[in-house]
Design a protein around this nucleic acid. Sequence first.
DNA 1: GTCTATATAAGGATAGAC
DNA 2: GTCTATCCTTATATAGAC
Lengths: 197, 197
Amino acid sequence: MAKSITRKNSTRKEMISLAAARLFREKGFNATGMRDVADAVGIEAASLYNHIRSKSELLQEICFRVANEFHAQLNELDQKPNLNSLDRLTAVIRQHIHMWVTRLDEVIVANNESKYLDDPYNATFQNERKVYARRLEQIIEDGIKKGQIRKVKPYVVVQTILSAVRGIEFWHRTKKNISIEDLTSTMISHLIEGLKK
Amino acid sequence: MAKSITRKNSTRKEMISLAAARLFREKGFNATGMRDVADAVGIEAASLYNHIRSKSELLQEICFRVANEFHAQLNELDQKPNLNSLDRLTAVIRQHIHMWVTRLDEVIVANNESKYLDDPYNATFQNERKVYARRLEQIIEDGIKKGQIRKVKPYVVVQTILSAVRGIEFWHRTKKNISIEDLTSTMISHLIEGLKK
DNA sequence: GTCTATATAAGGATAGAC
DNA sequence: GTCTATCCTTATATAGAC
C-alpha cells in the first residue's frame, strides 16, 4: 500500500521532471514558467507544489541525475583494466554520444542551464564537471606515457573532445541524412586519429 | 558639432552594448535586468532608453555584430586562392580562437543567448550560422576531392571543429597554466591531423 | 492531490520634471 | 540626457476549499 503510493508519486514526479527538462532545454530555465511545466503535464501550476518543492529543485535533480550517470559510466570503464588509452577514449566518446541520443533534454539542460543552480549546488556541480574532466585527463596522460598518444596538452584535448561531443545538440536541429553510426564513426576517427603518434 | 554628438552617442551606446554583453554572458539574457545593465554603466535604468530601444535590441546588435565579423573573416580567406584545404581549415581555427580570446563576451552571447532573439531575428541568425557552416563544409569537400582529407562526413567534421573551438568558453574559467599558443597548437594538431589521409 | 484565488516580488518600459 | 516615480505585466509560491 505504501509502496503503490510511493510509486505513484515518483511516477508523477518523473513526468514533471522530464517535462521540465524538455522545456528548460527548449526555452531555457529562466524563460520557462511553472505554468508552462504545469501545462505540459496537464495540471495547474499550483498543483506542481504537491510534488516538488520549487522550480530550483527541478533543475537540481535534472543536473545531478546527469552528472551521476556520467560518473557511473566512467566507473564501469575503470573496471576494464585491459583497455588501452585510445580504446578507453573511444569508449568514452561512444558513451557520451549515447547519452546525447537517449537523454538529449536532460544532458543539454545539465550543460547549458546548470549555471542557474543556486549555491551551493552550482559550486558542487561545477566541481563534478572538473573532477570528471580530470579523470579523462588521466587517460590521456597514461596514453602519452605509454607512447600511444602524441605529446599534447591533456587538458586541452579533454576539453576539445567534451566540447565536440557536446555539439551534437546542434546536429540534432538540422535534417541531415546522417545516421548515428556515421556520426559516431566520423567523430571517433577524427578525434582519435588526431591523437595517434 | 553634429559629428561630436554622434560620436558621443555611439560611444555611450557602445559602452552599454559591451556592458550588456558581459552581463548576458555571465548571468544569461533572461536573468539580466535592465537595472543590472544600468548599474554597470553608472546610470539609472530609465536613462538607458535614450540610447537603445529595448533589451531585445541589445541582444540583436551583439549577435549580428559577431555573425558579421565571422563572415568577414571567412571572406578574407576566400581571397587567398593558393591555400590548400588543410591550411584553410587551420586558418579558420586560428580565427575562431582569436575571436574567443579578444571578444569573449560577445561571442559567448552570440552562441548561447541567440535563441532568445525575437523572430524574425532568431530565424535570420540561425540561418547565418547555417550558411557559415555550409561554407566550411565546402572546404572539407574540396579537401576530400583533392585527396588531402580522408573520406569523412563534412557536416560532422565541421560541427566537431566548431563545437571544439566553442569549448574555449569553459577553458577560460579554470586557472590552468596553458598559454594561448599551447592551446592553439594542441587544438590545431588534434583537429587537423585527425583529418589527414 | 487538485483546484481557485491571491500574496508578494521583480522586470521592462514610459511620463514628465529638470 | 538623466533623473524620480510609476504603470503594467508576469512569475514563483502559498492558503484554503473541495
